[in-house]
Amino acid sequence: MSCALVVGGISGLFSDHLAGFRLFGFVHYLVPGGHETAGYAGLVVLGTALAVVTGRIGRAR
């Protein structure tokens, strides 16, 4: 899941700045209109944080 958020956020940033490039269409529904750049960057940060937390939990066991 965290990988999908990171890749989807990066894909959204690319589609926001390069018109016509759409790899993951689901991220369009996760980000409110008018706040695309901040929303996609937030998805990248959220996915990265989720990956770090789950990695630490996995190592602790």
Rank of each mutant, 00 (worst) to 15 (best):
G39P: 04
V53N: 13
G58L: 11
F26S: 10
F26G: 09
L46K: 11
I57S: 13
A41R: 05
I10F: 00
G47M: 05
V44M: 09
S15E: 02
G47H: 04
R56H: 05
D16W: 10
G42E: 11
R59E: 08
V31L: 08
G42F: 04
L46N: 15
Y29D: 05
D16M: 06
H28I: 13
V52S: 08
L23A: 07
A51H: 07
M1E: 13
G9W: 00
S15L: 01
A41K: 04
V45G: 07
L23K: 13
L30Y: 04
L23W: 04
A49P: 14
F21T: 08
G9T: 02
T54H: 11
R56V: 04
G39S: 06
A60Y: 14
S15A: 07
L5I: 05
V45M: 14
Y29S: 03
V52D: 03
L50V: 10
H28C: 06
R56F: 01
V6E: 00
A60M: 15
L30T: 01
H35V: 04
H35K: 14
H28T: 13
R61S: 11
A38L: 06
A60H: 13
F26D: 09
L13E: 11
S11N: 00
F24I: 05
Y40N: 02
L30G: 01
L30E: 00
R61Y: 15
V44W: 02
L23S: 03
A38W: 09
G42Y: 01
G58V: 15
G9D: 00
A41E: 12
F24W: 01
I10D: 00
G12L: 12
T54S: 11
V53H: 06
F26M: 03
Y29V: 09
V27D: 00
